[in-house]
Design a protein around this nucleic acid. Sequence first.
DNA 1: CTGTTAGCGCTTTCAC
DNA 2: GTGAAAGCGCTAACAG
Lengths: 341, 341
Amino acid sequence: MAANETGSRTATLSDVARLAGVSIATASKALNDRDDVAVATRQRVLRAAEELSFTPNAMAKGLLAGRTGTVGLLTSDLEGRFMIPILMGAEDAFGAGQVNVFLCDARGDAIREQHHLKALLSRRVDGIIVVGRQTDPRPSLGQEIPVPVVYAYAPSDDPRDLSLTPDNYVGGRMAIEHLISCGRTRIAHITGDPAYAAAQDRIAGARAALDAAGLELVGEPMFSEWTEHWGRDAAAMLLQRHPDVDAVFCGSDQIARGVLDTARDLGRRVPDDLAVIGYDNWEVLATNSRPQLTSIDANLQQLGRQAAQRVFDAIDGVDIGQGTHHLPVRLVIRGSTIPRR
Amino acid sequence: MAANETGSRTATLSDVARLAGVSIATASKALNDRDDVAVATRQRVLRAAEELSFTPNAMAKGLLAGRTGTVGLLTSDLEGRFMIPILMGAEDAFGAGQVNVFLCDARGDAIREQHHLKALLSRRVDGIIVVGRQTDPRPSLGQEIPVPVVYAYAPSDDPRDLSLTPDNYVGGRMAIEHLISCGRTRIAHITGDPAYAAAQDRIAGARAALDAAGLELVGEPMFSEWTEHWGRDAAAMLLQRHPDVDAVFCGSDQIARGVLDTARDLGRRVPDDLAVIGYDNWEVLATNSRPQLTSIDANLQQLGRQAAQRVFDAIDGVDIGQGTHHLPVRLVIRGSTIPRR
DNA sequence: CTGTTAGCGCTTTCAC
DNA sequence: GTGAAAGCGCTAACAG
């Protein structure tokens, strides 16, 4: 019997009742631990259910209850590195209870997203989390959705929605403050695509921290792609133009890896001659570099968990508020900024 | 109205019927494109549905139809790199139609898996895809599941189940054949944890290819972790012990990155002096190295798609067979084995 | 304590 | 063409 086709229809509550010799209602009560059932009867019902390997039909239940114990996760870019931890966090928060997650990947396509949204609504999900692929604001799903919606990572462009997004401004500030506290004063910035809100927010934070210390960025921020290649090329240019830099704040761990490569090629010792800090704390990159990479971690899993929690709260009727909330990030210090003893 | 609590209950079919001035039955027929409805009536019903933004209740439908248009995706390691493409492939295959995916991550915990399985069954999913985190066989869910089950990546340990897994043997063979076709004859192998079936299968394939060419591996396969660190250390040992190697087959792209690093440090030119081939074709690693990394791609997205297709077929009553099927992998050639002109 | 009854929202005969 | 009625599997009053 490949891939299991048991001919027999799955057992229903009435099958259980019949086998136990009681009414459906009594069977229901027994199975749901209601206290107005004789112990002996409950035993009999439980045994019957066991024997038939009875599994209650969640849909029938949902039909009555009005809630399905189901939430929709509407992502736009499953492949993206940032989606996964958020998704895990959400799954975690839900997984504990009776909730299951519908995963829908719109592949960044608005039409598909609308289609998925419709499907979720028709499945009567109790709530929806929308996970974007960047921290740039995305179009709101609108205010007409009959269930609570929370936006994670990419905030909604409608301030009436509730959005949770990592605090890139503070991230940029923390990175610089760390470098300064390591005694660096000639700090440059290499980052990715200037069109990303993330890039700009981090720069703003970085500049604020420099300002506060009476410092300035060495040269202008260098923009291009979020890749190792760019990190290498940019570092080469930087070190030639400004040989006196003593630290580089990188917009991503990938860029930082490239910077480390070039520093090595040019005989600059990290962190002694040059401190390097990355962003995202992509473990597999950050812990396998030489030296290991100090980085800013956006706590995405926690962000996902919080989004889920908010959806829960809203389902329970709690007012979860609105607007875009910037969640704390954290600094993870490794050998690329602090010499190991 | 944050997070959208529209006070009014979502519209039901009977609301639509009332507004259109017809019976529920007629409204149902009109909305489902049944042909025994007058054109004018249908128009009226459709307009009413539109006006109330009526969304049919999939659960009520499912109760009647006996199928839910829903499949369960039971993964054991969401974080893993291999899960995602499979998951995407499956979502793709399903997404086209009316099917939605329930995502459950068991975090590699059998208890949690059982719990999730129960939840899926009670939600009356039409089928289940089980995605493992390695290519080592995993415990079967058993033959008692009332819906079709397909195992992806990690095969089931029960041959009565249907499993789809990448062909690591052929992958190993292809890697070596490619190196040989590049004129290499002194080939070594650096790989990860010997306890992984993947590691052993690839070695077996590699040895077969070497045999066929009358060659032998240089030294024994070097086992440890699947990390860049190990790749660097192993390469250093290898090049010292066997300075005459002209190619290294690596068990993962991460290891290969490490090997490239060391080769560079020791002044070995890649690919001229030393050809390097990785495994997994992890794009972000493979395309950002110097030179770019030739690698074996397991076509995971396609594997996911196929798994979904099989589940579909089984739902439609097609016999999908049983046993473990090894799906083709492919060689992606880049600069680490072939000099760029 | 237990069983009867009435639905949840929808589709589907089967009369009219 | 259209509508009344019978459920899908289950829970929640309410009687007994």
